[in-house]
Amino acid sequence: MPTKLNLLPSNLQVSKGLGSFLKASRSLGVILIVIFAIFSLGIGGFFVLSKITLGNLQTKVNQLTSQVKAQETSEQQLILLKDRLAKIASARNDPNAYKNITNVDSLFTNISPVSSMNQANISSSKIDISLVARSNEDLATFINNLKGTTLFNTVNLSSLSFSPKTGYALTVSLGNK
């Protein structure tokens, strides 16, 4: 029967357990080296692809930048437009008596020329009118115009007097909407 001979010197021999450990660690080392190689290649490849993408994007951004710079005049004009339009909109919040002046004219509709408006003081917030109505009809027409208007918040008849020579003199204060 053949006999197994171990000719390795005793001081060079390793134990069974240690031998298994050494075998396993060598295998693990090989696997780790392979994984490391794949990992490094992957990282390197991804880095190169990203660099190419970035380069292409930079080229496109540079092209767009030159095109935008070529539209400089349009940009200035647009900025100017927006600036002016914003300021004009802000200015329109300022008090303006224009509306009251054009509205007050409607109160004299159908009034005969013999009746006259003595005085009208018109601002953005208030209208004071002094009127001389020569006839009952003109007075009634004016009062009806006052009643019918929806353009003013408040209407105060400050005074009303009658003179046979001049007719009805009235003073009205109007507050606008």
Binding site: A91, P95, N96, I101, T102, M117, N118, Q119, N121, I122
Partner: peptide, 21 residues
Amino acid sequence: FIKGLDTIAPVTFVSKMDLSE
């Protein structure tokens, strides 16, 4: 005339008007 102010540039508002006849 006052209505015409709304059609001119520069933008012009009416602050007040005192009208007498």
